[in-house]
């Protein structure tokens, strides 16, 4: 897909955004680690802490929902692929397309509802009601943004699936490579 046309540029751009979401989320996992260690140290020294716990919870939400696009791009979402693995390419791609559309329904509903939630919290100036009491507009933005990024990544996936349904050809991968990818997926899923 090295074409310079606008359509493919858009797909590449989405892929790039998903990649960046993964890097930022990774850094936030590290940041949470440091913040919690810092809080433990402060407490051991007899100083008080108030924002650390809540902030790291929000960072975790960021990792989950915004890192979700990265996870999807790298096929790291656990699924049951028994049926798909037993179907010919065209049928499998069609089923995957249906699965992607069904997933998009959930994503759309969550994006819509959490978007309304964000709007309400922003307009009414809701706060978290804790001792730190940050405005909820920031954490509430995570869910709609994350769902939007995941939806975009699904668009890229669906374009490829449509191509497979039309041509009946799968992306060419060697058997070894395929097995390695499968093992990698198993490792990721096997928690």
């Amino acid at each position: 897909m090295s074409s310079g046309s606008g359509r493919f540029f858009l797909l590449r751009w989405i892929g790039w955004v998903s990649e960046v979401s993964g890097y930022i989320s990774g850094l936030l996992i590290f940041a949470s680690t440091l913040i919690i260690c810092y809080a433990v140290l402060l407490r051991a020294l007899g100083f008080s802490t108030v924002w650390q716990t809540e902030l790291t919870i929000y960072l975790l939400m960021f990792v989950t929902f915004i890192g979700g696009a990265y996870g999807l791009k790298h096929d790291e979402h656990v699924n049951v692929d028994l049926l798909i693995n037993r179907l010919p390419v065209r049928a499998a791609s069609l089923l995957k397309l249906v699965a992607a559309l069904l997933s998009l329904v959930v994503i759309a509903v969550v994006a819509w509802r959490s978007g309304m939630m964000w709007l309400e919290a922003t307009e009414k100036g809701w706060r978290s009601g804790t001792a730190w009491n940050p405005p909820l507009t920031y954490p509430y933005a995570i869910l709609p943004i994350g769902m939007a990024l995941i939806a975009l990544q699904y668009v890229v996936i669906m374009v490829e699936l449509v191509r497979q349904v039309i041509t009946g050809e799968e992306k060419r991968v060697s058997p070894e490579e395929e097995e390695r990818a499968r093992a990698e997926r198993a490792r990721i899923q096997g928690l």
Binding site: G22, I29, T64, G68, Y70
Partner: peptide, 21 residues
């Protein structure tokens, strides 16, 4: 180091999404 962080992101997002839903 960045591989470790990306690996952790991929696994975490997967588990936590299942937790959420």
């Amino acid at each position: 180091f960045s591989e470790i962080l990306l690996e952790s992101t991929g696994e975490s997002t997967m588990v936590m999404m299942i937790v959420a839903f």
